[in-house]
Write a protein that binds this DNA or RNA. Structure first.
Lengths: 228, 228
DNA sequence: CGAGTAATTGATACTCCTCAAAATGGGTGG
DNA sequence: CCACCCATTTTGAGGAGTATCAATTACTCG
């Protein structure tokens, strides 16, 4: 049940053009369009939990989601951020590999994993789509690993900004749906270093921070050059 | 997998299943057994190159392979190491995402990607196998990202050793097919730090280095405890 | 046996994490 | 509407750890 439009104007990610996944996964998109039930989540709510059986598969309609893992020492690693059009849970094994939490009010379409699996057995197009979505997830994960392997806070933050700008498709001025802590846990840095680095980038004239959440890339090419 | 994070029971799942490749991808293995051509590569030879069309798919029979990406500044990031039984190139898009190089003399089975793709269109079992291999690749990549996000050279090296020991299936005494530089580029460290860290682990009685390439894990549980 | 590569080790500089505190912003209740 | 509180963010100072620069040692292969 999605009784209300949960997303305020500020989080109007819903209008974002369809991400790459969908270009190559039309069969999967069609199925979701036809079969999936819509579900709403308030900010902070969990869509699914790490180590739970992965019964459900989601497609994000509006809002933003983060997936993370918790460790015994209290450390948290954010694995990925999801924007409208992205699938969540497809790349899971029998259990979810991470907890997914709504960063903003979220609207998602849900399907039972088994249902999808059954349909795939009879539809090569769907099978192929599932494969390609997983390949895409793999490639994203590799990019993430690449960012993390990169020494230097500036390079990591810059890499994130450039990637996120491309994904949000809002041009070079966009709102970050995540906190500094989320960002830090995603980039393998501390919240302090993230904050300092953003201030630093602003001082260098590469970005402009209209608020702590709204960022504008003033010199995208300059940011990219930081990544070599 | 999940080499690190000797987490509490709640997260024990993250300890990663065995190389799923063989268990769940029987259909794919059968195809390779029947259809694939065998090819040999001398150490240092490339199986495929980053940004080239991904026509071929490999299954490693003997030896070890590393995949890596090069950057404009000369930096190199090793994405993964492959051991016998592993598939290479399946998770590629239309182009290889990384260059694959033989670390030792290698024997591999090769198939044309298009051939595999055609067969998958007619065989749901194969489609499913392809999907699952990609999911597995994704999970490995996530584990890699997790290691890289981990602060501390000791934790990264320990994570690698535990993971590699599990993958090599030689027990706790095994030979490293890669150089220190390969290791450093995989772990996001310098070769100096890797070397120092290994010396440190040896001094602590956790490992024994019979030579620079042959390692014995004396206290696997001690290593795992370093990973929290 | 010798030359070149790989690996180890040492000293120093620099980056980022830790500890600490102040400032900003959002939300609530008066 | 304003004052207040709390969470988030920013900023500062000091210390731990790794990269860098430099040199020595060990190993491999011809």
């Amino acid at each position: 049940m999605a009784p209300h439009n949960a997303a305020p104007a500020a989080y109007a990610f819903a209008e974002a053009p369809r991400p790459v996944s969908q270009e190559t996964a039309c069969a999967l998109c069609e199925i979701f369009d036809e079969e999936a039930a819509t579900q709403a989540f308030a900010a902070g709510r969990e869509l699914c939990r790490q180590a739970e059986p992965s019964y459900k598969v989601f497609r994000l309609r509006a809002g933003a989601v983060a997936t993370y893992r918790l460790f015994a020492d209290g450390r948290r690693q954010v694995m990925n951020f999801y924007l409208p059009g992205d699938f969540i849970g497809l790349e899971a094994g029998v259990e979810y590999g991470a907890t997914a939490v709504a960063l903003t009010p979220v609207t998602a379409e849900v399907m039972r994993r088994s249902e999808l699996s059954d349909m795939a057995a009879a539809d090569p197009r769907l099978s192929r789509a599932l494969w390609q979505v997983s390949v895409r997830a793999f490639q994203r994960s590799e990019e993430h690993a690449l960012v993390l392997a990169r020494h230097g806070a500036v390079e990591r933050v810059a890499a994130f900004l450039v990637d996120f700008a491309a994904r949000s498709r809002k041009g070079w001025c966009f709102e970050l749906p995540m906190t500094r802590q989320d960002l830090a846990d995603y980039l393998g840095l501390t919240i302090h270093t993230v904050s300092r680095t953003l201030s630093q980038l602003q001082a260098a004239g590469l970005i402009e921070a209209r608020s702590s959440r709204i960022v504008r890339l003033l010199q995208p090419s300059g940011l990219e050059s930081l990544l070599r």
